[in-house]
Simulated assay, not measured.
Amino acid sequence: MSTIVIVGGTSGIGLELARRRVATGDDVVITGRDGSRCAAVAAEVGARCRGVAVELSDPDAIGAALSGVDRVDHLVVAAIDRDQNTAADYSVERALRLVTLKLVGYTEVVHALLPRMAPDGAVVLFGGLAKDRPYPGSTTVSTINGGVMGLVHTLAVELAPLRVNAVHPGIVGDSPFWQAKPAGVLDGYIARTPIGRLATMADVADSVDFLLRNPSMNGVNLNVDGGWLLT
Rank of each mutant, 00 (worst) to 15 (best):
V45M: 08
V76D: 05
R19Q: 14
A112T: 06
S67V: 05
G8Y: 04
I195V: 15
R213M: 12
W228H: 14
M1Q: 07
V99R: 10
A40C: 03
T3L: 00
A130Q: 14
R48P: 01
V110F: 09
A64V: 03
G173F: 12
P119Y: 12
L159G: 03
Y135E: 11
F177Q: 09
D120M: 11
Y135S: 13
R71V: 11
V208C: 05
L98T: 13
T86F: 02
I13V: 13
P115C: 09
L17I: 02
V185N: 11
G219E: 05
G127K: 03
G32D: 00
V172D: 07
G63N: 01
V164W: 00
N85G: 10
L66I: 05
G219L: 07
L114R: 13
L229I: 09
L212K: 07
P161I: 08
L113E: 10
L222I: 07
D187I: 01
K102R: 14
V92I: 11
A40F: 00
G170L: 05
V99H: 15
N214C: 13
V29G: 02
H168Y: 13
V7L: 01
A130E: 15
I80D: 15
A23F: 10
D174M: 11
V208P: 04
T140P: 08
G196H: 08
A166D: 01
G127R: 08
L66N: 02
R192V: 14
V110C: 14
Y106I: 06
G8T: 02
R116Q: 12
I195D: 08
V148C: 00
L222F: 10
L15R: 12
P134G: 06
W228Q: 13
G147M: 08
D203Q: 02
R163Q: 06
R97E: 15
P176R: 08
S11P: 00
I190H: 11
M149Q: 09
A43F: 07
D120S: 15
A88G: 13
R50T: 09
E108P: 03
T139W: 04
D81N: 09
L159I: 01
I13N: 03
V224D: 09
L186P: 08
M117S: 04
D174P: 08
P115S: 06
I195H: 07
V204T: 06
D73Y: 05
A202E: 12
A88M: 13
S138R: 04
V104Q: 14
N218V: 15
L159M: 06
M201E: 00
S11W: 04
L151G: 00
R197W: 05
P161D: 09
Y106F: 14
